[in-house]
């Protein structure tokens, strides 16, 4: 009896399995033939001259949103506007005036990275995103 194995409702089962495999392999065919390296970030002349960010590059990469959170908290709740980093350098804790002073190329820096990982910070609802250009 077991010798003549057959699939019942073959059409429907095969159609279901094809849909399953297409869904499961989505990342493979969606990105077919694309290389997707991390976006190249442009540093402004000013940033290049300064050489270092507020924290080390590794810390900034993973933790800049938490740094911004700390800055926001100290300015808005504690009226504390000066930040001293690990190497003793002082910064005025401001999103638009400090971060975007060095990184005034927001579109080629913050946004590029954020688009790559699909995050859209709501900060720009209120904060001016490019003070330099706004002044012109």
């Amino acid at each position: 009896m077991a010798s003549n194995k057959q699939m019942y409702d073959k059409g429907k089962v095969v159609a279901g399995l094809v849909i399953f495999v297409i869904l499961i392999t989505f990342p493979f065919w969606y990105n077919l033939g694309k290389a997707a390296p991390a976006p190249e970030l442009k540093l402004t002349e000013k940033a290049k001259a300064e050489k270092v960010c507020v924290m080390s590059k590794e810390e900034m990469k993973a933790g800049h949103m938490q740094l911004l959170d700390i800055w926001r908290e100290s300015v808005v709740r504690n009226a504390e506007r000066t930040y001293v980093n690990a190497s003793g350098k002082e910064y005025s804790m401001s999103l638009s005036n400090t971060c975007l002073d060095c990184h005034s190329n927001k579109a080629d820096f913050c946004d590029r990275c954020h688009n790559y990982v699909s995050v859209s910070p709501y900060c720009w609802d209120c904060h001016i995103d490019n003070p330099k250009e706004a002044k012109k």
């Binding site: 077919l32 997707a36 390296p37 933790g63 790559y116 990982v117």
Partner: peptide
């Protein structure tokens, strides 16, 4: 822990593009 999300995405994209 705050991982390097951009590095992780490079890694996962490498996996799905077979590099």
């Amino acid at each position: 822990l705050k991982e390097d999300i951009v590095g992780i995405k490079e890694f996962t994209m490498g996996l799905v593009t077979f590099h």
